[in-house]
Design a binder for these strands. Structure first.
Ligand SMILES: Nc1ncnc2c1ncn2[C@@H]1O[C@H](COP(=O)(O)OP(=O)(O)OP(=O)(O)O)[C@@H](O)[C@H]1O
Length: 729
DNA sequence: GGGGTACCCTTTTTT
DNA sequence: AGGGTACCCC
């Protein structure tokens, strides 16, 4: 194929503004654009275009927010030009780089990656060792503090220098000792992946130069949610060729709590002098009703440059805002509406349900299960945090990095093998004294005087178990996992009431390992552990599975669906109570605005249908709490928004009535006393189950028609009309 | 000294 | 619901 026409093909279905960005030549480029305007499309096409222009695939690096988004982009580029480029997240890229380069910092390449729970264990230990009162020095708060320092690229020494007063000095000391512990465990936390990469660049000009030479083009998606270290890494990488493409939308910053820095985007032109800026103003995703509502809502953010986003699309169906008595009624309604959509030929994978917090999935799961609707809770991070999965991961982690005392302590007596708290203490003391890891101390258990013969034998036994597993280290991840389960007797030793659970979880874990083995036969155990440490929630979501995904609003970023449900849109939930106390925000207002952006991100995921709901009662920490509608709901326009169950009492009964209808499914109504031949208010009807009644009102709930009927024997009920009845309504 | 149990609290979002 | 801590029994 002649080159010209292939390039034309890549840019054919783009707007002028999009094409300008895709085909932009050398130098920094910023695409500043609203939701659904084609930012991700521009990045993907630009990669394809560069490849089409003859840039070698290995001279391009693209960075996305999740591994799933990275795979998706790689696949799209491959489909466009048949070439394989490197697309990754910042964290995965850094982990890969550090496996090669961390020796330059005097550290070992077989490092463990710690998640928050691992880090928390380290902080707890530091607090104990420093003999601080954990009530005053909350390990959680201390870890947050450390994270904050790291987000600002501030090491313990600098932190200590800047400390004002004894209190802050103590925090800095905790930070210092936390770092020492991580080093002696040969572990890096998530932030370290970024910081050590910067350190490699700083300490080793040769390495920096190597990467700067290698990457002719650096492209970063979702720039509004990058933190300072990520920004610095991007800047370092483009340092030689100066070809950076960043795309982002300031209205979609939703990770400030994790250090995201909007300045990275808004001050791009200062950081990258001579940057060319392209703005995209047309939304290609959503119906006019959806875009109008989303824009109206986000316009209430005052810390914001007003931005006009328009669409050529039709109004579309009205947005539905519905109120329910409680989250269970809300869940049943969502399930019922999903069933309806599926009957209307909307594929389940084109429907999604979003919520603020993960525990909101439960009522939805119940409701979907009872209607037998295919659904999938998108929660990979949660999966890897499950106790049983973490336990087995720790056994494997210890094979790669025997110095990982956190992993060792986690499983040293799991399942119970006679190494109790006292023995552990003695082992730890011996390890500190000898300057060894816990595992090495166990190898030499017989020589530790403080240990009785029984304890010594148990400890030595653990070491031998590790050694036996270690001999199999080169085997596939799945094989190792199943051998670890066998050799440790993990399942047999589970309490009977948890065995089934554990078995299911570990089966899933083995499946996951099997998939890894197949996909990355070269990755080995280390690659497997690395990938599972760096998963994002959406990574585990199979978008081809034909199931409705349930996910957090955060996870929904960057995705799109034909129909979207956002549940639990209540004061205290969205905006979330805790988010309003988040100290990373300068003001209450800023905190509220981030919550509004989250709602905005959710709404703008929808192409055609948007359903927003809230409940009057919600169970929080086992308590039933009254809930008010979210203030954000008042910000939606009247036009193109249909509100159901507006008053509190009506909503309460609506919930119960809905319940009934769902159980009975749809049974058709017969019109009595021949006069009126229409299902309209006032008509007398008869129902096979409820008997006779009078229609109170008829209404539309989204695409479906419902009637409220006052039955003589049952009182008011909401009935959903069968398609055949609709013509009569 | 190990192991089991009861009670606390804490989770908002996640690389 | 899961971990941590405190307490009790073996
Ligand atoms: N020029 C175009 N022609 C047709 N469809 C387009 C065009 N540009 C974008 N789209 C479609 O619009 C939708 C949104 O595009 P994309 O996901 O790239 O937007 P985005 O700006 O990254 O969105 P967001 O920031 O909201 O995640 C996609 O379905 C995409 O295919």
């Amino acid at each position: 194929m002649p080159k010209r026409s292939r390039l034309d093909q890549i840019t054919a279905d783009l707007t002028d503004a999009q094409r300008e960005a895709v085909c932009y030549g050398e130098g920094p480029l910023l695409v500043l654009a609203g939701a659904g305007s084609g930012k991700t499309r521009v990045i993907t096409r630009r990669i394809a275009y560069l490849l089409g222009c003859g840039v070698a695939p290995d001279r391009i690096i693209a960075v996305t927010f999740t591994n799933k988004a990275a795979d998706e982009m790689r696949r799209r580029v491959e489909a466009l030009v048949g070439k394989d480029v490197y697309v990754s997240t910042f964290h995965s890229f850094c982990a890969r780089l550090l496996r090669r380069e961390i020796g330059r910092l005097g550290r070992d390449a077989s490092f463990t990656i710690y998640d928050r729970a691992d880090s928390l264990r380290v902080v707890r230990r530091v607090v104990r060792e420093m003999e601080l009162d954990p009530a005053t020095y909350s390990p959680r708060a201390l870890l947050d503090f450390i994270g904050l320092r790291k987000d600002r690229v501030e090491g313990p020494r600098e932190c200590r220098q800047r400390a004002l007063g004894i209190e802050e000095q103590t925090w800095a000391d905790v930070y210092q000792r936390y770092e020492e512990q991580l080093a002696s465990n040969n572990a890096l936390d998530f932030d370290d992946l970024l910081l050590r990469t910067l350190e490699v660049f700083r300490e080793s000009p040769g390495a920096l130069q190597h990467y700067q030479d290698a990457y002719l083009h650096v492209l970063v998606d979702e720039y509004q949610d990058t933190n300072l270290p990520q920004h610095l890494i991007a800047r370092a990488l483009q340092g030689k060729h100066r070809n950076i493409t960043a795309v982002g939308d300031p209205d979609q910053t939703i990770y400030t709590w994790r250090g995201a820095r909007l300045e990275n985007l808004m001050e791009f032109e200062q950081d990258f002098p001579g940057a060319h800026v392209v703005t995209l103003k047309r939304n290609y995703r959503s119906s006019a009703n959806i875009l109008r509502a989303a824009s109206a809502c986000i316009s209430h953010n005052v810390f914001r440059r007003p931005k006009e986003l328009h669409t050529e699309r039709d109004e579309g169906e009205p947005i539905v805002v519905a109120q329910f008595a409680d989250s269970f009624a809300e869940g049943r309604w969502v399930a019922e509406m999903v069933q309806e959509l599926m009957q209307d030929r909307v594929a389940p994978r084109e429907i999604a349900v979003f919520y603020r917090t993960k525990n909101q999935s439960l009522p939805l799961e119940d409701a979907f299960a009872s209607l037998d609707l295919p659904h999938q809770v998108v929660d990979s991070v949660g999966f890897f945090e499950r106790r049983q999965v973490k336990d087995l991961r720790s056994y494997l982690q210890l094979l790669i990095n025997p110095r990982d005392d956190v992993a060792c302590l986690r499983v040293i007596n799991t399942p119970p093998r006679g190494i109790g708290a006292r023995t552990v203490e003695k082992l730890q003391a011996a390890a500190v004294q000898r300057g060894t890891s816990l595992l090495e101390a166990m190898r030499d258990a017989e020589q530790i005087e403080a240990l009785g013969p029984r304890a010594a034998r148990a400890a030595r036994g653990f070491y031998e178990l590790h050694a036996r597993l270690s001999a199999l280290r080169a085997r596939s991840a799945k094989k190792l996992l199943s051998r670890a389960i066998e050799l440790t007797g993990y399942l047999e030793r589970q309490p009977a009431d948890e065995r089934e659970d554990a078995e299911e979880l570990l089966d899933m874990f083995m499946d996951y390992a099997g998939q890894y083995d197949k996909r990355s036969p070269e990755g080995g155990l280390m690659g497997f552990l690395e990938q599972s440490a760096l998963v994002s929630d959406v990574d585990g979501w199979n978008d081809q599975a034909g199931a409705v995904p349930f996910m957090t609003l955060h996870s929904a970023k960057g995705l799109e669906f034909d129909a979207v449900f956002i549940v639990g849109v209540e004061r205290g939930m969205l905006p979330h109570q805790r988010a309003m106390q988040e100290h990373v925000h300068d003001t209450d207002r800023a905190a509220l605005e981030e919550e509004r952006r989250l709602f905005y991100v959710g709404m703008t995921r929808a192409r055609h249908r948007l359903f927003i709901s809230h409940a009057r009662k919600r169970t929080l920490r086992g308590r039933q709490e009254q809930a008010e509608p979210s203030p954000f709901l008042e910000e939606l326009p009247a036009e193109g928004v249909e509100r159901l169950g507006a008053s509190g009492r009506a909503a309460a009964s609506f919930g119960r009535e809905m319940d009934y209808v769902l159980k009975q499914k749809k049974l058709s109504l017969r019109i009595l006393d021949g006069g009126a031949n229409r299902l309209a208010a006032g008509a007398r009807v008869s129902h096979p189950v409820y008997g006779e009644g009078t229609i109170l009102e008829t209404m539309r709930m989204g695409s479906r028609h419902v009637v409220r009927v006052d039955f003589a024997a049952h009182g008011p009920m909401v009935l959903v009309l069968a398609a055949a009845d609709v013509g009569r309504a």
